[in-house]
């Protein structure tokens, strides 16, 4: 899918923890009006329909009317909308969250240590097998569309 420079939004997708995120930022070069908003919405709808598995839509929020209308229109399509002041920090947070989960899974405990025994929460899932281990290794997979960010 080709990014369109004339749109008032810029988009990129990322997959983290087997969930696909759609990031939407404002194109600073274009001040939205109704017509450009309509073009942008059409483009976003195409992305949502092409990637049927989008879990969450992250919008770089400002107080503009069109930004709020955009959030409403995305929510209406059954997609969770998260607003953030800094899209880059949100991307970092998502990636860091995945890395933290990975570290918990890789912690090795020593047996027979004297004194108090520390008890760590141990999370197991039904799909704790080699496939899921591989899936976790592949958990962070970013597929930037047009290097807009």
């Amino acid at each position: 899918m080709k990014e369109k420079e004339h749109l008032w939004v810029k988009t990129t997708t990322a997959t983290a923890n087997n969930k696909k995120f759609l990031f939407i930022a404002k194109n600073e070069n274009i001040e939205p009006d109704f017509n450009s908003f309509a073009d942008g919405m059409q483009y976003i709808n195409e992305i949502i329909h092409n990637y049927s598995d989008i879990y969450c839509c992250v919008i770089e929020s400002d107080k503009s009317v069109y930004n709020k209308l955009l959030a409403k229109c995305c929510e209406a399509q059954g997609i969770t909308v998260r607003k953030t002041k800094s899209l880059q920090s949100e991307i970092d947070t998502i990636v860091r969250g995945c890395q933290r989960q990975k570290q918990v899974r890789q912690t090795n405990y020593k047996k027979g240590t004297s004194g108090y025994k520390k008890i760590f929460p141990h999370i197991t899932t039904d799909d704790d097998d080699s496939d899921s281990e591989k899936a976790i290794d592949d958990m962070i997979f970013m597929d930037l569309m047009d290097d807009d960010f």
Binding site: D33, F34, N35, F37, A38, D39, M41, V65, Y66, K68, L69, K72, C73, E75, A76
Partner: peptide
């Protein structure tokens, strides 16, 4: 003419819907 689909709900003009005709 450009068109958009907006979902059901409550809108306040100037806040989450632009002024105009």
């Amino acid at each position: 003419a450009k068109e958009i689909l907006i979902p059901q709900g409550t809108y306040t003009v100037g806040v989450d819907f632009p002024e105009g005709t």
